[in-house]
Simulated scan of single mutants.
Amino acid sequence: MGELHKLDNQSQLIVAIKTNDSVALKALYISNYAKIESLVLSNSGTKEDAKDVYQDAFIVVWNNIKNNTFIPLNESAIQGYLYTIAKNKWMDIIKSSRFKKTKSTYEEKSFAYKSDEVHEDDSSNEKMKATMDAFKNLGEPCKQLLTSFYYEKKTLKDIASALNIEENTVRNKKYRCMEKLRTMVLPQKT
């Protein structure tokens, strides 16, 4: 319970993130997941969609705090930042043509925040740690591409221009890198 209390103090939480304090990171991961799952499920998504979006958002927040590009201004800033990034990622997904093709009955709704009880899920703990480890072990081209997109907030067009390749190629590479990351993290179905 002492570690969960640590989440109330943003400066302690920042230190915990920067030092890769696995107990505090797990507590942060678990304590915020239910809100994102509720958001995704109430807006045409599945539990798998929620896990994927949350993982992506968590990595962005983790990176931005470690690199001092996000400085929390109040005692709930990190949690709010995590929620906002996940929400924006999910909005981008549901607006994509690929999602609309698979969810043809989807009607755009306003995003409703629902406060659910936090479910402590051991698989979420393991998934968060596995995601962090997998990101460190990604090949340099993938790490660079994902860092440019998620951390440096560069557009696919900007990345394509810098690499002197087509935007579609960058989009495909980013997709393959994320798939590689997911493959490294998610257990293989047999």
Score class of each variant (00 low, 15 high):
1 M>G: 14
3 E>S: 08
5 H>F: 13
5 H>M: 14
9 N>R: 07
9 N>K: 09
9 N>H: 08
11 S>N: 10
12 Q>Y: 06
13 L>M: 07
13 L>I: 03
15 V>H: 10
17 I>N: 06
18 K>A: 15
18 K>H: 11
18 K>D: 12
20 N>S: 14
21 D>Q: 08
22 S>I: 12
23 V>M: 08
24 A>W: 03
27 A>F: 03
27 A>P: 06
28 L>C: 04
29 Y>W: 08
29 Y>V: 03
29 Y>H: 08
33 Y>L: 06
35 K>D: 08
35 K>F: 05
36 I>W: 00
37 E>A: 07
38 S>M: 07
42 S>I: 03
43 N>Q: 12
43 N>M: 10
45 G>M: 02
46 T>D: 08
47 K>M: 10
49 D>Q: 03
49 D>E: 09
55 Q>G: 04
56 D>W: 00
56 D>M: 01
61 V>E: 01
62 W>H: 14
65 I>Q: 03
67 N>V: 12
69 T>W: 10
70 F>M: 04
73 L>R: 07
74 N>D: 09
77 A>V: 00
79 Q>F: 02
79 Q>V: 01
80 G>H: 05
81 Y>V: 02
81 Y>G: 04
83 Y>V: 02
83 Y>W: 06
83 Y>G: 06
86 A>G: 09
88 N>K: 14
94 I>Q: 07
96 S>W: 00
97 S>H: 10
99 F>L: 05
99 F>W: 05
100 K>D: 06
101 K>M: 06
105 T>M: 14
105 T>V: 13
105 T>L: 15
107 E>I: 12
109 K>E: 14
111 F>E: 11
113 Y>E: 11
115 S>T: 15
115 S>G: 10
117 E>F: 13
118 V>G: 02
119 H>M: 15
119 H>Y: 15
120 E>V: 13
120 E>I: 14
121 D>Y: 05
122 D>C: 06
125 N>Q: 05
129 K>L: 15
133 D>T: 10
134 A>L: 09
135 F>V: 07
137 N>H: 03
137 N>M: 04
138 L>F: 00
138 L>T: 01
138 L>I: 02
140 E>D: 08
142 C>Y: 05
143 K>R: 13
145 L>F: 05
145 L>E: 00
146 L>K: 07
148 S>A: 14
149 F>N: 00
151 Y>Q: 13
152 E>L: 15
153 K>G: 05
154 K>G: 05
157 K>E: 01
159 I>F: 04
160 A>L: 09
164 N>A: 12
165 I>E: 11
166 E>M: 04
166 E>L: 04
169 T>M: 03
170 V>L: 07
171 R>Y: 02
171 R>C: 01
179 E>M: 15
179 E>Q: 14
179 E>R: 12
180 K>C: 08
183 T>V: 15
183 T>S: 15
185 V>T: 11
185 V>A: 03
187 P>T: 11
